[in-house]
Design a protein around this nucleic acid. Structure first.
Lengths: 181, 181
DNA sequence: GGCCTTGTTGACACAGCGCCAATAGTGATC
DNA sequence: GATCACTATTGGCGCTGTGTCAACAAGGCC
């Protein structure tokens, strides 16, 4: 499994053969199929592992005003993504293997989790409605793009990312969310 | 080519064989390779076609204040994406075929074009600097996610999308961009 | 009619995947 | 300690799909 995570993290899906994974683990190729089923199922597990993120430290967010809460959640997000930058960004950036249904669903669930965290952190945890959920998912999308500009391209500093994300989220909380049904 | 666009638009990359494309066009499979080279090159062309968007009507944006310009550019974006929803969203959502370098680059270029349009429309066209470019790309990322929530999931109305995108972009122009070097 | 260029086909070879029968370990039971 | 069930593991078969290439048809120039 660790071999698969490493290989899929550094090479695209099509360029990683199950033979490579097997060789990396020092076993026969048939064994990979025996344990993980098909190649896509293995990749699915890999993506799950990559996207599984420690959700600790999110509960202890300050109970101050919106600005403080937003600041805390953004800080938490940046910590997480910078710690797991390579694998997490690779998985999210993978974006769905050109429209594959299963992989898309796994990624969508990870985005859902992040979006739900956003909503609870901003005080909209209880029944935010589908519209606000969608908006929160869109915000998570921007957050991942921003993180990519920071960690992969290096055109943004962490401070700039922080400012961008806190300012926009605060705007959404104050001006956009109230208008959503 | 049209057959390839249609097939890749409705099925994931791996589930579309060059034989399918050839049969759909009524020719032999070898001919596809003869004209387009490898399968990935064909897909690359398809993505290029999908992402090629009429850039008209963008020049005639109002010369009013920031709010009007932002409103105009968002309206233009929503028009474009709703008109080409299936193919454009499919290509962008494809997100890069699980990390493939070439496809990622094509998509990145399309995002660059959109980001550049954002910057010119907001009056930062001349030498905005790499930081603001990165922020604009991140905004385009959010815009695509938002469009997906609207057109694919149907949890947002066009009005809600419009409000979200104009408000956040205005915030970025007024509060975030000025701080970027 | 020759002839060169272009268009098109079918077949060959190869890589990668899923499956499955066969074999090697690993304790538990008496 | 031999037997037995059960898991772990291997190698190989068949299939699908891809890239390539030599061969063949189809048109314009002379």
């Amino acid at each position: 499994m660790s071999v698969a995570v490493r290989l899929f993290g550094e090479r695209p899906y099509a360029e990683v053969s199950t033979t490579d994974v097997a060789r990396g683990a020092g076993v026969a190729r048939g064994l990979v199929n025996h344990y993980f089923g098909t190649k896509k199922e293995l990749y699915l597990e890999v993506v799950r592992v990559m996207l599984t993120v420690p959700e600790v430290a999110l509960e202890g967010l300050p109970s101050g005003g919106p600005a403080e809460r937003v600041d805390a959640i953004v800080t938490w997000f940046l910590d997480v993504v910078s710690r797991h930058s390579t694998s997490w960004l690779a998985a999210i950036t993978a974006g769905g293997m050109a429209g594959d249904t299963d992989v898309d669903q796994v990624i969508a669930e990870a985005i859902d989790v992040a979006a739900e965290s956003i909503l609870t952190a901003t005080g909209l945890g209880t029944d935010p409605g589908e519209a606000r959920r969608g908006m929160a998912r869109a915000y998570v999308g921007m957050a991942t793009y921003t993180a990519r500009e920071w960690l992969q391209r290096g055109v943004l500093t962490r401070d700039q990312v922080h400012t961008l994300l806190t300012t926009t989220l605060l705007t959404m909380v104050e001006k956009v969310f109230p208008q959503a049904a």
